[in-house]
């Protein structure tokens, strides 16, 4: 890890802000959704409808968990498969790929600060959301929640 990354606090507010800014930008280019950050807080505890988690390894470790409205996941399927009426059952696949794309884009916020990141494979998350910094985003298709349960080893 570089000297700059040797700081113990991995999730300082500026990192969360940069991570979220990249997410908002990537949402716009990937699924054409404009998201507005409504709050940064603890998880609301509601059961997710389509939730996907990816584990980060390396200098910053832990899961990044996404909760998407099914409509946003299906929008990615529409775009990738050029199918205007995708099967609703493909929402989970769409959510997994969207989580993969968004997390891959946004980890640049960590890499640019000297934290090396290894990204895991997306997995469907069931049950309550993990603890961590939660970013609530509002979109026309419904709210998106991003839970960063990250720490330095």
């Amino acid at each position: 890890m570089s000297p700059a990354a040797a700081r113990t606090l991995a999730l300082q507010p500026d990192i969360v802000e940069s991570f979220t800014a990249l997410v908002v930008q990537c949402l716009r280019t990937t699924v054409g959704v404009d998201a507005v950050v409504a709050a940064v807080s603890e998880p609301r505890g509601a059961l997710p409808t389509v939730a996907v988690a990816l584990d980060l390894g390396g200098d910053v470790r832990g899961p990044v968990t996404w909760v998407f409205p099914p409509e946003i996941a299906l929008e990615l399927v529409r775009r990738l498969m050029a199918d205007p009426h995708p099967d609703p059952e493909t929402a989970a696949d769409g959510a997994a790929e969207l989580a993969n794309i968004l997390t891959g884009c946004a980890t640049e916020a960590l890499e640019s600060r000297g934290f090396r990141c290894a990204l895991g494979v997306p997995r469907v998350h069931t049950g309550e959301l993990p603890g961590g910094i939660t970013v609530h985003m509002e979109t026309a298709a419904g709210p998106i929640e991003l839970v960063l349960s990250l720490s330095t080893p």
Partner: peptide
């Protein structure tokens, strides 16, 4: 074809002889 922008991973691919990267999306 990847969503990763990790320099380590891209360098590993370059060392292996990969010349083309397609970043998702």
């Amino acid at each position: 074809c990847t969503s990763l922008t990790s320099r380590d991973r891209i360098l590993a691919c370059q060392r292996a002889g990969v010349a083309y990267y397609l970043l998702k999306p």
